[in-house]
Design a protein around this nucleic acid. Structure first.
Length: 285
DNA sequence: GCCCAGGAGTGTG
DNA sequence: CACACTCATGGG
């Protein structure tokens, strides 16, 4: 794309493959040259830091894309300081170096809510297909083949039948109910809430239980103390810490053990455990 | 064909 | 509180 405006941002350390490809966000696409193309609001950007600094090629949307990338990648997080805190845990300390450059993302809240409601009992490849399908069906066409994530209002008119036709399975019912329950003011009110209150509020919504509420708190609202527990993290806690039990039990353990940066600890444990799987869906073991 | 997937909702003991 | 069961469907 000739003459696309470029920006450079100082975000380091940053590993785009881990950060954008690990399953905390679902719409980024890795190009042949190792760059990553994605959609932020109504901007289309291509990120590349293979030469050193992070360059942002703005394919659509203008200069504001720079600030959106900075927020999305949580450029303000001091990763080294966070790892220094977590390294006091003897189990984590030896393996943290492997995950330098992994950054927790800060997705737009509504996109994050929908994404993780759809993510229940599914897999990353299918989640990606589901999300891209509803974007094509209900999102604004902002560039050739690129669709913005649909707004609450944009999705509200979708029938359960059409959502089912997009491969959502029984999640179509959840998403439909969710769109009738939530509006933009609900979201903006949630952005002002403390983590525990937000979590309780999210769990009142259809299709959101303990795990999804914690994913949304972490990846959509930026609460780094949140610790989502899926099957991989549950395995990791049992294998590495000898801890088993219900969600509340495991969550309490993690909160006391990992503190304010439990979300980062969770992502390290998640990626490490998943990379041990026989059919290793993880490309960076 | 089988088992699994970044689980939630509901009913029962 | 803990389980057990169901939900719909693509991926490996």
């Amino acid at each position: 794309m000739r003459n696309s405006p470029r920006l450079t941002l100082d975000i380091a350390p940053l590993d785009l493959d881990m950060t954008l490809g690990c399953g905390q966000t679902f719409r980024w696409e890795r190009e042949e040259d190792g760059s990553w193309t994605g959609i932020l609001g109504e901007c289309v950007v291509c990120l590349d830091n293979s030469e050193g600094p992070l360059t942002i090629q703005i394919r659509h949307g203008g200069e504001r894309a720079g600030g959106m990338v900075l927020e999305y990648l949580r450029g303000g997080d001091d990763i080294n300081a966070i790892q220094a805190v977590l390294s006091k845990d003897p189990v984590l300390s030896s393996g943290l170096a492997r995950f330098i450059g992994l950054r927790i993302v800060k997705m737009p809240p509504w996109e994050c809510i929908v994404s993780f409601v759809l993510a229940t009992n599914s897999n990353i490849k299918r989640i990606t297909r589901m999300i891209n399908s509803i974007a094509e069906g209900y999102g604004e066409n902002i560039a050739e083949g690129m669709y913005a994530f649909p707004s609450v209002e944009g999705l509200r008119n979708a029938t359960i039948e059409d959502l089912s036709g997009r491969g959502l399975g029984y999640r179509a019912t959840y998403l439909h109910a969710l769109c009738q329950t939530v509006d933009e003011s609900t979201i903006s009110r949630m952005e002002r809430m403390a983590y525990e209150d937000l979590r309780n509020e999210l769990k009142k919504l259809p299709g959101i239980g303990d795990k999804v509420a914690d994913c949304i708190s972490l990846f959509g609202f930026g609460h780094l103390g949140s610790f989502p527990i899926d099957v991989w993290v549950e395995k990791a806690l049992g294998r590495l810490y000898g801890v088993t039990g219900s969600y509340p039990v495991l969550r309490r353990f993690a909160t006391e053990r990992f503190g304010a940066f439990a979300g980062y600890a969770q992502e390290y444990l998640f990626l490490n455990e998943r990379s041990l799987a026989p059919d290793g869906a993880c490309a960076f073991s």
